[in-house]
Amino acid sequence: MTAGGTRLDDDAAAPAVLTRLARDAARRPLLVALDFDGTLAPLVDDPDASRALPAAVDALRALAQVPGVTLALVSGRSLTDLHRRAEVPVGTVLIGSHGGERGRVGEHGLIHEPIQLDPEQDALLVRVGAGLQRAARGRNGVWVQHKPAAAVLHTRLAEPDDAEAATREGLAVAEELGVHAIHGKDVVEVSVLTVTKGTALQQLRADLGAAAVVYAGDDTTDEHAFADLEATDVTVKVGPGGTVARYRVPDPEALAEALAGFAAALA
């Protein structure tokens, strides 16, 4: 139950609370921040095949036209990868690598706020990557992605036994090196920076002076953001599973519909 007595699994609750927020002109500036995979885009086995739903793209374009509203995508993907596939309007803030990277969509492409690692962090990142490569070696469907400040072990395409073993070894690498690991859906991301989606979202909120935040996500990594936001903000879990979010929608299609209704109510 939410504080207002609405059931978390009531599919009508999220659209209703968004409509109420749209009608409250005092709650501006407004930050609308969203995860990408599993939230705007249905989950697929091949990450390169992931695309936002056309209805979600349309809803984001409508939201971007509303004065006092800032859009942001908050993803585990690298910033360049997120920008390449996001299909979001100019001015959208992009937060990648679970909070480790930040930029903005400009008229002529991605405006990237660069990450500066010191020599010790650079050396540690090499060790993280090597450790995850060992966890992946000899296991079909397990692979390692390298980011500016992290390495990611992917297991979505692996058989369950291989995925479990690789995940266990990936988490052990982080523990051995004394660095932060994020265990999400079929991924272990090991970063040399101590960041989460929640801390990145809090920083963006402060920079914007946002009076209210809407955040939607589907993954365990989104729980950091749900937990760090205020009780008066709107947090939406997409899909099944335990959550600290205050509202839930069943799937990305339902979220796209809710966002379209939100944009219409704001107009």
Rank of each mutant, 00 (worst) to 15 (best):
G4Q: 14
G5Q: 06
T6V: 12
D9E: 15
D11H: 13
D11I: 11
A12W: 00
A14S: 09
A14T: 09
P15K: 01
T19E: 14
A22V: 10
D24R: 14
D24C: 12
P29M: 07
L30S: 04
L31H: 08
V32W: 02
L34W: 07
D37M: 11
L40R: 03
A41T: 03
P42W: 01
P42F: 05
P42Y: 09
D45N: 14
D45Q: 13
L53D: 02
P54M: 04
A56Y: 04
A59H: 03
A62T: 14
L63I: 03
P67Y: 09
V69K: 05
T70G: 00
L71P: 00
A72L: 06
L73G: 06
G76D: 07
G76S: 05
S78F: 05
L82M: 12
R84W: 04
E87T: 05
P89F: 06
G91M: 01
G91P: 04
L94P: 03
S97K: 04
S97W: 02
S97Q: 10
E101I: 06
R102S: 11
V105S: 12
H108L: 12
G109W: 11
P114F: 09
I115Y: 06
L117D: 00
P119H: 07
A123W: 08
V128E: 05
G131S: 11
G131D: 08
A135Q: 07
A135P: 02
A136C: 05
A136Q: 05
G138Y: 08
R139Q: 11
W143S: 14
V144W: 09
Q145W: 01
Q145F: 04
P148K: 07
A150L: 11
A151K: 00
V152T: 15
R156L: 14
D162G: 04
D162T: 02
T167N: 10
T167V: 10
E169D: 15
A174L: 10
A174G: 10
L177S: 06
V179I: 10
V179K: 02
H180E: 14
H180C: 12
I182H: 15
I182W: 04
I182D: 05
H183G: 06
K185E: 10
D186E: 15
D186C: 15
V187F: 13
V192E: 01
V195Y: 04
K197P: 10
A200K: 01
Q203M: 09
Q203V: 10
L204C: 10
A206P: 03
A206M: 09
A211T: 12
A212Y: 03
V214K: 04
A216D: 00
D218N: 13
T220D: 11
T221Q: 02
D222P: 01
H224A: 12
L229C: 07
E230F: 08
T232P: 03
V238K: 00
G239A: 02
A245P: 01
V249P: 02
V249Q: 03
D251N: 14
E257Y: 08
A258K: 08
A260W: 01
A260I: 00
A265D: 11
L266Q: 10
L266E: 03
A267H: 15
